[in-house]
Design a protein around this nucleic acid. Structure first.
Lengths: 343, 343
DNA sequence: TTGTAGGCGTTATCAC
DNA sequence: GTGATAACGCCTACAA
């Protein structure tokens, strides 16, 4: 049981060379190194079971090959998909990720950001809450590598990876329209904060309705906290004219809607057509199969990691470039044009 | 734009005290510190915008307040739930987690373990693959804090957090039996490796059948890779006597089964009763609602974090204690006893 | 081609 | 109460 920690000095001693030579060896600077020196070092490393201490290296080199990922709320399938994709790309580039879940609390987010910086992570990818502008700003002024994802903060000149949210709503509305629906609503779960996706999705939704000359009925447009969605739905469906079609702003809203239709025995799509933003795991096995607007999470996560790593490696960050990713309509059976009477 | 890094030395200078005094201040050792000294230091820290460098501290203290989490395969909902729970508990204890996805590759796992150790993480929680026994063993012999989760490795004396897998199968079989099903099968997706949950679930399944004097039909018991499940199902259902009830070994297997029933227009539960291990997000909104066996992921993740942190903080690890968590049967509508003829 | 010496930012020991 | 000084383990000029 090899308890004592082996350092580079031990290796040097064992191999009868100096610490610097060992260090060179470890860093692959073989250029001027004698064959036998190499071998002796290799042997010593093996014999002693030496393992480099990256913390010490980090201290010296001011780089940790670790990045922070702060997720706004990990309970969205979208978040975990993005994290998964970031991890994959980072792994290829030999970075590690520290994952943090801000749970939509700006204070938590702030604490995480501060700790991550204290731990000298090389950069961070964050799903920003909207209440830490000054903090982002200050990081950015120091040229601290940072990338936003899912949301953005107009005041802060940081690159953002985002869905083309308006396009997403537009795709949905067009699909509804194409299939003959007219009374169309949208439901999103909101935190108090004005997060980009929600705002843009609603905006895009309204615009798309208008451009199709469809009625914009405020009572079909709801953005409330998750646990209030069911209440809103009840209310919406006690209107004289309830909506015929509903767009779910994200996966959790979709689940609420499905729960509601189930409970009240509404048939999809005949009583209510549904489209969800986010291609949930069960979309193609649900009865009926769910028409969704998918986000390219793989590419988005990868792009975020790429951008961050290139910033870390010295590229000047582009001036608040916004990368918009296109959503894809996956047309399935929860929105087919079959309406109530027909069933 | 404050480019130069502020260190403890700068603060000391600014406050006209020594580095040691500042360090004491930072570490809350106020016992013998003058009021005004404190104030001067506080002021200096503020003025200079000093931020401690945890890497340097880690080097000195040999502790990073960071732990590694190596997930076998993050595409299971179970994995992300566990990670989420671990993160939550770690956050409360001021630890950070580095998340790694081994994708069921022992080599990847090994690389991760080595890098994490090199980064001096204080301990690791791992969903072990079965092919790194020597590595685990060696870590363990060095008393390196480690906790296994979901799976365990009999040869290695490390504590494990696990579902009571046999109980899970048993609950399912009993439910099937109670409702009058007799031809009962199980489908799991397997990696090549002999992972604990799969093995135990099948074992428990067979035992439960036997104890109920139900027929054990090998052609109803399949453990194959994910993409082969559909093939197996086709085969199973071209038997003269196909199964009446099927237990899905985990979330992904369940999805495969549901895909299959959908494609072949089998009605659940009348043509086929289904129970899934893992309480998937869509269980209660699926049509029909899915009877599942839920794992207490929150508690399991928490326990893993607790155990690890207490080991880190000096507690001797218990001698390969195995913590079994009880599954819960959530009886819904995919298994009701209603059989073919009745519909 | 290899070795020496100093420093990265912090903490710890022990004087003063 | 406070301050030198020496680590922690590694990297990197520069010297030899």
């Amino acid at each position: 049981m090899n308890t004592k920690k082996i350092t580079i000095a031990d290796v040097a001693e064992e191999a009868k060379v100096s610490k610097s030579t060992v260090s060179q060896y470890l860093n692959q600077r073989f250029e001027y190194m004698g064959e036998q020196t190499k071998e002796r070092i290799a042997q010593a490393i093996k014999d002693l079971g030496y393992r480099p201490n990256i913390v010490a290296r980090s201290l010296k080199q001011k780089t940790t090959t670790t990045i922070g990922v702060i997720v706004a709320n990990i309970s969205h399938e979208f978040s975990t998909q993005i994290v998964q994709s970031i991890e994959k790309y980072c792994n290829e580039s030999n970075y590690h990720i520290i994952v943090c879940n801000a749970e939509d609390h700006p204070e938590k987010e702030q604490k995480y950001i501060e700790m991550l910086r204290a731990k000298q992570v090389d950069g961070i990818i964050v799903f920003p809450t909207s209440n830490n502008k000054e903090l982002y700003q200050s990081l950015n002024l120091e040229d601290y590598p940072m990338v936003f994802i899912d949301r953005y903060v107009p005041e802060v000149k940081v690159s953002s990876i985002m869905l083309d949210n308006k396009k997403a709503s537009q795709l949905a509305v067009e699909e509804f329209h194409r299939l003959g629906y007219e009374r169309i609503g949208i439901i999103t779960n909101s935190t108090k904060n004005n997060v980009t996706p929600r705002v843009e999705r609603i905006e895009g939704f309204v615009q798309a309705l208008e451009s199709k000359n469809l009625e914009v009925n405020e009572s079909y447009i709801k953005s409330v906290s998750l646990h209030e969605i069911s209440k809103e739905l009840v209310q919406m469906f006690s209107l004289e004219q309830p909506p015929e079609a509903l767009l779910a702003g994200n996966d959790l809203a979709l689940i609420e809607i499905l729960q509601f239709t189930k409970k009240h025995q509404l048939q999809i799509p005949s009583d209510l057509a549904v489209i969800g933003i986010d291609d949930v795991s069960f979309a193609s096995i649900y009865n009926p199969e769910l028409t969704t607007i998918a986000q390219p999470t793989d590419e988005m996560g990868k792009k975020a990691a790429e951008l961050l790593i290139s910033q870390i490696q010295g590229e000047k960050p582009p001036f608040q470039q916004i990368y918009r990713f296109s959503p894809t309509l996956l047309s399935r059976s929860s929105c087919t044009g079959i309406k109530g009477g027909i069933l």
